[in-house]
Design a protein around this nucleic acid. Structure first.
Ligand SMILES: [Mn+2]
Ligand SMILES: [Mn+2]
Ligand SMILES: [Mn+2]
Ligand SMILES: [Mn+2]
Lengths: 216, 216
DNA sequence: ATAATTTGTTAGACTTATCTAACTTATTAT
DNA sequence: ATAATAAGTTAGATAAGTCTAACAAATTAT
């Protein structure tokens, strides 16, 4: 059985390798806000437990076992978020930090019950896919909105970041998942986009925001 | 902020002082299945934090602050159990171990939402009172069923122990809270009781069982 | 090619929570 | 009153997870 701390390392390792391919000790250190020497020693420990492949001065890779363990925690995290929104009535901006804690609960029946009550959902409230019980993730690859061109009409499918502040910002802009967005113009200098959607005739989003919107 | 471990000590301290008045290091050690020297050193630490009154070789008492902290965790534990049963559909025998973990979640909104969804319940699924948000516990003192006499008709209000095995036993006996029980006879030698309730014309309960049933 | 910078490791310290062994104090039995 | 037992403490060890300081390797810039 892995500790709560080990679980958080595995999860970070999994998302970082999806974002960047290779994962350096430094990336992990920044993501987890834990100093590099601590990360190095944890990598040795996880390698000992055969959850990662690690050779010194080389990037770290999750083993098959490690991947399985990681997706299992991600499944619990995302089911929890979905439960908090759909069953308990929380806003999508409130649930990440609570799920960050509940994901470590050791009780298969608890998460299976959530899954059942929710009707085996495929996506969490932020549009991220919920891994199935075997750790397999079904769901297409989304495009970054910031890489779309003037004139395109796309559908907002997921956020690349579920921080409370960013989601609250989207709330004030009345932008929610599944919304159809049309790109009116793109400023070449800094990537700022002027867009229209729903009842909003014209909204301006910085590249920082557009980078965090995933579309199809 | 108290650690998960400290919270478990506070909770044990609170229940033991309700059961026995004074709490010895030895009682705590047995209840938590932690060796006495470890308990001693934790008592020093909690005394340092002014959560308990402790002088060496003397019984330990929770301070007012300690009591408040303890009832706060107990509130979270019992709300969770109630939520698991009432909202998620678990049996009363399944919820204690899950609540033992979730009680440590740091998120006032999470527990307030549970409380609201449940309509501010006063008792948990085992009949124990749920402390209010200020830590006050409203609820009468129940009698031990084992101390009742032949011929009495009483109402089963709570269990003194929520272990899965005991509750499963009660399930097989079809005995649930609020059931009216009549005592047909009491064996003076070992306290075994013959009783009748619901559609059960005659059931025999050992003193071990009767000690764990609380009635009014 | 060399120097500067960034990245990564080693060594050693600290904190929290646990343990065992040895000793002391308090309680109980004779 | 004394001996035996139970309860409690002290001292020292261990494991997990973190840190800082010092050093080494790898990468980037000149
Ligand atoms: Mn999340
Ligand atoms: Mn977490
Ligand atoms: Mn309980
Ligand atoms: Mn607990």
């Amino acid at each position: 059985m892995n500790s709560l701390v080990e679980e958080n390392y595995l999860k970070a390792l999994f998302s970082l390798s999806n974002e960047h391919g290779e994962v350096n000790v430094n990336d992990l250190s920044k993501r987890l806000e834990i100093k590099m020497p601590t990360v190095t020693s944890m990598m040795k420990k996880l390698a000992e437990k055969e959850l990662v492949h690690y050779e010194k001065y080389r990037p770290v890779r999750l083993s098959e076992m490690g991947k399985k363990a990681a997706t299992h925690i991600i499944r619990k995290h995302r089911l929890t978020e979905m439960f908090l929104v759909e069953v308990m009535g929380f806003g999508w901006e409130e649930v990440h930090d609570i799920a960050e804690q509940i994901e470590h609960v050791k009780s298969p029946v608890f998460f299976n019950k959530m899954d059942e009550i929710l009707g085996h959902p495929s996506f969490d409230p932020h549009g991220s896919p919920i891994p199935d019980i075997n750790g397999n993730i079904h769901g297409e690859q989304y495009r970054k909105f910031s890489e779309c061109k003037k004139g395109e009409r796309v559908k907002f499918m997921a956020v690349a970041n579920s921080s409370e502040n960013f989601l609250k910002f989207l709330n004030t802009k009345g932008l929610s998942l599944e919304t159809q967005i049309e790109i009116l113009s793109v400023e070449p200098f800094d990537g700022t986009m002027t867009v229209t959607y729903g009842d909003r005739p014209s909204e301006v989003f910085s590249k920082v925001v557009c980078d965090k919107l995933l579309v199809v």
